[in-house]
């Protein structure tokens, strides 16, 4: 464990807390893409298959349970909670995310470290996580004005993988055998998707103005 990775995990946790806060405090999920949340459930379930077989540390196990539990809770809330599901902008959340699942799985069948069930699903979860934010970013551009909590949610979500890239660079120099090209390339692509969002987020922060994404 290094400071970059810990910062990344904490930033990831903060993004989930901000989203849960927004949904529970405002009893609204307006501006939130249900499709992105469903993709995250698939990412965590596919990646943490080793949850009960390989014990790495209490921290590792607890965080995996938190990520799986919170992503399921958010999807449940947006689909089932009476008050919240009414505020879901279904007509704005139109990204065909099934293609992202299919594409990531096909890519995992082609590009992986070992052709084993667990490795294929791990690579699948890495590729899917890189594109999982797309429905959310498309929805933000469609909905124009972004409320503060939603903007902060996306910002922390983008920042977490940026910290992980620093972590991979650090591990590359400190651990000779470290194999990381799948996660690193995918992490770079993932963070690149946030580039324009980060730009507009910074502008809105500098001008102390509301976050506006060009349609």
């Amino acid at each position: 464990m290094n400071i970059f990775r810990f910062a990344g995990d904490m930033t990831h946790l903060i993004s989930i807390v901000v989203l849960l806060l927004k949904i529970y405090a405002t009893k609204s999920c307006s501006g939130i893409s249900l499709k992105t949340q469903e993709l995250y459930v698939i990412v965590f379930l596919a990646r943490y298959l080793d949850l009960f077989t390989d014990f790495i540390s209490v921290y590792n196990t607890v965080m995996k349970l938190v990520f799986i539990g919170s992503s399921l809770a958010i999807v449940w809330c947006m689909r089932m909670h009476r008050a919240v599901k009414r505020t879901y902008d279904k007509e704005l959340d139109t990204f065909r995310h099934y293609f992202l699942v299919l594409g990531s799985f096909v890519l995992a069948l082609l590009l992986h470290e070992k052709f084993t069930f667990q490795e294929i699903f791990w690579a699948f979860s890495i590729y899917l996580e890189a594109v999982a934010i797309l429905p959310q970013l498309v929805m933000l551009q469609r909905s124009g004005n972004v409320d503060n909590l939603t903007g902060q949610y996306v910002f922390f979500l983008g920042a977490y993988r940026a910290f992980y890239i620093l972590n991979w660079i650090y591990r590359f120099f400190t651990e000779p055998h470290f194999s990381r090209w799948i996660a690193c390339l995918s992490g770079l692509v993932q963070t690149a998707f946030y580039a324009d969002f980060f730009y507009y987020y910074f502008i809105s922060w500098k001008n102390n103005a509301k976050l506006q994404l060009p349609a």
Partner: peptide, 10 residues
């Protein structure tokens, strides 16, 4: 032991 793989990450 086995080289530290990336699988110890979240």
């Amino acid at each position: 032991g086995a080289p530290p793989s990336i699988k110890d990450e979240l």
